[in-house]
């Protein structure tokens, strides 16, 4: 990776490229909503086994940026590369199929459905033969067994019964289910949009632990959050979004939270 492939990012010098290969790269993303500029040419990249934190004030274009990465929005111009290949996402489904999973703040799970059903929602395991192909009969045992494996791998052992409905779980456990789903199906990148905003401290830590595990498995992680301690705790690099552009890319080792906030709010310039 050369610096030339990252034009315009001023703070790249003190935040070098990730050690491993870049898995997701965005170049010059722009998005306008009528007269309102959401993104004015944003570059971003995340490596395999790297956590990229994304911070920014309200209206800085954080959500727009994330929606462009996950297919919820299509940028007006600019290009996404996945594993170096140019990709275009028209729908969230496209991004998902390409290996990018998203965890949302609150909308991740259907509360009345059980854990296994939620993990496999929209991607159910079906029985073989005509029953599965034509009538879409579910292989419920396989889904429950796999669900148990997923949750065990992520160390959420406190949940015993995969037939338990998700609404009987705590907020942190629910979010853990959403993260587990992303982990199970996201082969390349997991984007977490404010995953801890609705959670308490302990529960946030559970989710952050899972984020670290996904990173250690070699996934690229994009973590969007308003919670600076969370971002500083898990991120390898931090993308500061401001006024529709990338104001800086920091490392938690070289910049304090207050410095980050200062850049984010425009009180300081890199």
């Amino acid at each position: 990776m050369t610096a030339a492939s990252d034009p315009g990012v001023t703070a790249q010098n003190d935040a070098p490229e990730p050690a491993t290969g870049v898995v997701l790269r965005a170049e010059g993303l722009t998005k306008k909503f009528g007269q309102v500029v959401g993104l004015a040419g944003v570059d971003l990249h995340v490596g395999a086994g790297e956590v990229l934190g994304v911070i920014g004030d309200n209206g800085a274009g954080k959500s727009t940026l994330i929606n462009c990465l996950t297919g919820a929005l299509t940028p007006d111009s600019g290009q996404l590369y996945l594993d170096g290949e140019p990709v275009v996402f028209r729908r969230p489904q496209d991004a998902r199929e390409a290996g990018i999973e998203t965890v949302y703040q609150t909308l991740g799970v259907a509360p009345a459905l059980d854990i296994a059903s939620n993990l496999f929602l929209g991607r159910e395991i079906r029985r073989g033969g005509v029953a599965g192909q034509l009538f879409r009969f579910l292989d419920q045992r396989a889904m429950q067994q796999k669900a148990e494996v997923f949750l065990k791998q992520l160390g959420i052992l406190t949940i015993q019964n995969m037939k338990q409905s998700v609404e009987t779980l705590s907020g942190g456990q629910r979010q853990a289910i959403a993260v587990a789903r992303a982990a199970a199906f996201g082969s390349k990148v997991v984007v977490l949009d404010e995953p801890t905003a609705a959670l308490g401290v302990k529960e946030s830590n559970l989710v952050l632990d899972m984020v670290r595990q996904l990173r250690d498995r070699g996934l690229g992680i994009v973590l969007v959050s308003h919670n600076m301690p969370n971002v500083w705790a898990v991120s390898d690099r931090i993308h500061v979004q401001r006024l529709g552009t990338c104001a800086a890319v920091l490392r938690p080792q070289t910049h304090t939270m207050s410095e980050g906030v200062a850049i984010m709010t425009g009180a300081a310039v890199v």
Binding site: L107, G108, G122
Partner: peptide, 12 residues
Amino acid sequence: GDDAQAAGLAGV
């Protein structure tokens, strides 16, 4: 019926 938005985001 449970949560149309969550279902949609999950790919339903």
